[in-house]
Amino acid sequence: MALLEVDDIVVRFGGVTAVNRATFTADRGVITGLIGPNGAGKTTCFNVITGLQRPTKGRVRYRDRDVTGWPVHRRARHGVGRTFQRLEAFGSLSVRDNVRVAHEIHGGPLTWLGGSLIGRRGTGRGGGVDLLLDRVGIAEYADERADSIPTGTARLLELARCLAGDPQLLLLDEPSSGLDETETDAFGRLLVDLAAEGCSILMVEHDMDLVMSVCHDIHVLDFGEIIASGAPADIRTDPNVQRAYLGYAETDGDTGVLEPVAQEVLS
């Protein structure tokens, strides 16, 4: 059963078509990958799904409701969370306070009032904040200002911030860039755990290893269009995908030297 259905989305900026009739779904409780070369329109798709960008055409359905006309915050209140490719951490707040803000936004005005009166120590929810930081593995940075931490850490912070809102659908935009190898492995395990807990994840990612190992389904976007959808094994051998990533179809005469790369990139 699809949690999210993106139906025939078109986005045009001036004369440029960034997304062209993209149709794909993300299922409940699994990790779905959205991949494609740079500039293929992946982030624009995310913006459409979260409501930051109005589509020129097409609908977005979430939990069987048409949410195309919903404002950003309403979608978020219904469980759509996201991270950003170009970081949007609250730079002048500490890492811990970034997550607390998310908690408080999620909790609504009553928690703000409570927070104001009760102040720094919180009601025990503060503990929840620290648990979240621990879970994504950035507890050691809790007291640092968010604009002074490394990119990879800031991405994890954005993830923790999303999780504070208890999302049902998590959109991650290039979450692993800036992470080293061990961190990426740990991150992959975290994603799998989250999915097992029932959180659906849609992820734009360039690290093919990560995508191929954790994703249940993969959609490939190229030139604003979905050119392939399926399980990782199918995607790896899809000629359209090879063409998108390497500029060659398998039938192209002079792929000799590049074939190993093609195989490696997609394996």
Partner: peptide, 11 residues
């Protein structure tokens, strides 16, 4: 090319 494949996969 050989190096390339390694690098794209992050080693």
């Amino acid at each position: 090319l050989d190096t390339m494949a390694d690098v794209i996969l992050g080693g």
